[in-house]
């Protein structure tokens, strides 16, 4: 490879120019050289990335195609290959496993829409509210972030105590103090109510993240734009719709994608609230995969469900990134 030198003289073919040749040497422009050193420097990081992410993912896909149970567990490398059998078991709509799988996918979608929707709405409302200056703003900002700062398990365990039927704080307030439900103490963690309880806990944990991201995005919206809009008679709602939303759209797009992926894969909240097996109304896809893998030692089926989940999320994410996220030269 040779370094290039910029030649400032006219083209050599221009014979009409008779002036003495004046070559002004310019500082050489450094062209990026492919130095091997760069590769070797990132080698440890790439190795770790492969070990931590890629190899487990490939193994997970492989498990979906083998019969992995207690008989084959110790020698799992040689577990028999069963082709698509695990997928057929998991996807057969006539079997109880297949029915549970499809019902759970639908329930998880609804759960994701509700949790992300409520979290985003709360986060946006709080961010807009705290974007204007007033006394005590810093205190409120800190206060709002507490659920996000608390370890997820601690917060969820506290909610499990509060939702307890006999001694929980929620029934104490609603039934004992306010006299609701005709004195009947509702079960919040059993039956159909369990789904709602799980949505509440997840929204409580997630909305401060939306608040934090949107608040950061709002800092970049210049005040002049709002002032100009106000002078032109735009209402607060119009300002929000036509200024705020479009100007935070890049951050918003990424935020919704990340929150949706987290929520769709949610495992901790149901596991801490309900234990290893959730009530049917509150069974999400990740706990279902756990139940099938560890409850019945059917790791092949669990692997097949994981692969299907991966495919669904990959397609949905790719579609979203293509259609919704802003196109720039770096992310197109």
């Amino acid at each position: 490879m040779s370094r290039s030198v910029i030649d400032s003289t006219p083209a050599a073919t221009d014979s009409s120019v008779s002036a003495p040749e004046t070559r002004i040497p310019l500082p050489p422009r450094r062209r990026r050289r492919r130095s091997p050193l760069a590769y070797w420097l990132i080698l440890p990081a790439v190795l770790l990335e492969l070990l931590v992410h890629l190899i487990p993912m490939v193994l997970g896909v492989w498990i979906a195609f083998i019969s992995l149970n207690q008989l084959t567990l110790t020698n799992w490398v040689n577990a028999p290959f069963v082709g698509l059998q695990n997928f057929m078991n998991g996807l057969d709509p006539n079997s109880s496993i297949g029915q549970a799988f499809f019902a759970t996918i639908g329930r998880t979608l609804l759960y994701t829409v509700l949790v992300v929707g409520f979290s985003w709405t709360l986060g946006m409302a709080a961010a807009v509210f705290l974007n204007s200056k007033f006394r005590g703003r810093a205190l409120l900002r800190t206060f709002f972030l507490v659920p996000y700062a608390l370890p997820a398990y601690v917060g969820t365990i506290a909610w499990a105590f509060m939702f307890n039927n006999r001694d929980g704080a929620i029934n104490q307030v609603l039934v004992d103090t306010m006299g609701l439900f005709d004195g009947d103490r509702p079960f919040w963690l059993l039956g159909d109510n369990a789904f709602g309880a799980m949505v509440i806990v997840n929204v409580w944990q997630l909305w401060p993240f939306a608040f934090l991201m949107l608040m950061a995005a709002l800092q970049n919206v210049p005040n002049d734009v709002y002032e100009a809009a106000a002078l032109d008679g735009a209402s607060l709602w119009q300002q929000f719709r036509t200024i705020t939303l479009p100007m935070v759209q890049p951050a918003n797009g990424v935020l919704l994608l990340v929150m949706s992926l987290w929520t769709f894969n949610q495992f901790n909240v149901p596991f801490v609230l309900f234990g290893a097996t959730s009530p049917e109304s509150a069974t999400l896809i990740s706990p279902l995969i756990y139940q099938n893998s560890f409850g019945s030692w059917n790791f092949g089926l669990g692997g097949a469900m994981s692969v299907l989940l991966l495919l669904v999320l990959l397609v949905a994410s790719a579609f979203y990134i293509r259609m919704v996220l802003p196109k720039g030269k770096n992310n197109d």
Binding site: N69, N89, S95, S96, I97, N165, F187, L190, G191, D192, N193, P279, S296, W297, N298, L301
Partner: peptide
Amino acid sequence: FAQAATGTVTEADVQDALTDANNQMLAA
């Protein structure tokens, strides 16, 4: 038990629940 706490349970419900558990074992 969760169903009993929030509503009613019949012998048919018990039969269905145990049949479902048995089918899951067979599938595994």
